[in-house]
Design a protein around this nucleic acid. Sequence first.
DNA 1: CTGAAAGCGCTTACAG
DNA 2: CTGAAAGCGCTTACAG
Lengths: 357, 357
Amino acid sequence: MATMQDVADRAGVSIATVSYVVNGTKNVSPPTRARIEAAMDELRYRRNVVARALASSRTHIVALLHPVLGNRLGGTVMGFVIAASNGARARGYDLVLWPVEDEEQMSHLLAGGLVDGALLMEVRVHDPRVDELVTSSVPFALIGRTHDETLPFVDIDFAATIDTAMRHLTDLGHQAIALVDGNDETGWVADLGPTVRTEAAYREHMTAVGGRSVVISVPPNAAGGIEAARRLRDEAPEVTAILLMNEQAATGLVRGCASSGAPSRATSPSSPSPPRSRWARWSIPCSPCSRRPPGSWGSWASTRSSISSRASTPAAGRCFCRARSCWGSPRLPRLARAPGGAGRAPGRPLSATDPAP
Amino acid sequence: MATMQDVADRAGVSIATVSYVVNGTKNVSPPTRARIEAAMDELRYRRNVVARALASSRTHIVALLHPVLGNRLGGTVMGFVIAASNGARARGYDLVLWPVEDEEQMSHLLAGGLVDGALLMEVRVHDPRVDELVTSSVPFALIGRTHDETLPFVDIDFAATIDTAMRHLTDLGHQAIALVDGNDETGWVADLGPTVRTEAAYREHMTAVGGRSVVISVPPNAAGGIEAARRLRDEAPEVTAILLMNEQAATGLVRGCASSGAPSRATSPSSPSPPRSRWARWSIPCSPCSRRPPGSWGSWASTRSSISSRASTPAAGRCFCRARSCWGSPRLPRLARAPGGAGRAPGRPLSATDPAP
DNA sequence: CTGAAAGCGCTTACAG
DNA sequence: CTGAAAGCGCTTACAG
């Protein structure tokens, strides 16, 4: 692999000049530049990013920290990943997805000086990884937020999401509405921002309308969904509609509800018999709702904000899962001007134009 | 951030000695070691991995290259990711997921000297990224394989998968079996190893049994699935079972088939009317099959090898999607001894004990 | 067992 | 506009 010195030798210039044209840091006379570019082409020169990082204290890498969960990465997460990747590239950074198990591993990564900045996903309300991020001197932003909302973050507006969902269901005439959300043995899922905030918004809504809050928390998998269906039947038989904030449990939930009575076709004119089950018909609106034939199955696992309901009236193509989000929250610009001075102050958003420390 | 020199000063030793204890490269007398370790603790020393990488020519990072597709990352992919991550860590490496759009970006990454090795996913039969990998001097392995099977790879055994699937369906009495696989406007999906090899195995099987091959290739999304259902109805009405090699189209396919006739409960004793649709009942066996009540809905999007069939007889808890895989294929050891000599020869599998070039 | 020193491949004030 | 030189924070033969 050709080095910058090789290029300099071949072009008959100093290594500094080569650096100037490679980085565009200084003006170089056209003839000199041409010689250097020719030499680079001939030698197939590629700058060594490790050496550059050491000399400049900038790696131009942003890490997207994601916990190593067994789960697949859903559409919502991938949306963030792709947007972050594009955003990084547009600013001259590379975005890498870094699977980290705990704050210990994170600390190792951050202290190593290998990343210029970090993005954290699957943020919990009380998250030791965020503490680690704060103590590190690496600029960061959260995708999701902790209880401390002064930290830089972007997040989905769960209150608005719940609001939209509840309005839909009450418009359909539902009053006894349950929330099924996530839980696991470690408490990890229960403390996730989306879980906590959805539940809070749901309870607040139910209290406001004078209804009873029914919250069923189950593991994020098919078995959890089945369990939720069973518990709903046993513990809250009055419930006619469900908000689902546990994508991985969706299939199990539907299956469980369906098997709690024989499925029927309530709206089919050729079926004179009445619905045999409370769960006669399920509708799970989702992103490509516009294409969804009314009353038919939606696409599974579309977004975390999927809403499932017993739609006694077909949903008629409305889409309920476009969660309003807080992108570009006023918090971000404010923190951008936050104190911290030069260098990589914690809590400061990334910027491609940051000076080297 | 404390430097190695700081630690050396504090412990009253040379920087070399600190390096020896940090890396365990040489024996250091217990008292000296103790002083150094104390100094490191007090200073909260963390070795700068960038400097180490430059000096040693090894970054201890392995990149898992994945194309930036809009799709979510399914269970199969995540299985590979997690296994690779654990494997890397066990050998003292960090595994990062690097989203790359094309071979151009890959070349940039590989030449930069930032990764010690690379793993490539979503391999196509003719894949320019693999050519780039071969020309680079970075050791690599493919997850999936191209037409050139002398390159180091691990892959699912698609022939065996199809064999198992076909046996299941023929055991159920099916003869007219169609394959629904993937396609897109760029031809990318159609050239994917899984697509190509599944289709080949399917056609071979059908030819062997004297049946007609029916292959429907549709985009990997819900609309594609609906399209497939329509085309099956129009172009191959004799088909009674389907192999699905297009996870993302699963929901659309089922929806499309269901709406091509009214759904019914063929096996329910309380329903005297005969099935109104050819697609009376669908069963999609999947990983957690053992938990699946016979004849009920499986979990969606479980593996690429999911098989959907019109199970006139309930599948009775058998699981058909544990694809046999080629992990530890004899190819790997052979290539491990392949020519290429010292350093990072192309085509040589990664090893934690590789000497620095 | 320990250390002095060269070197990894760049960047970047500072001079000219 | 161009270059000599120090320096980024380590590793690693080589000596002692």
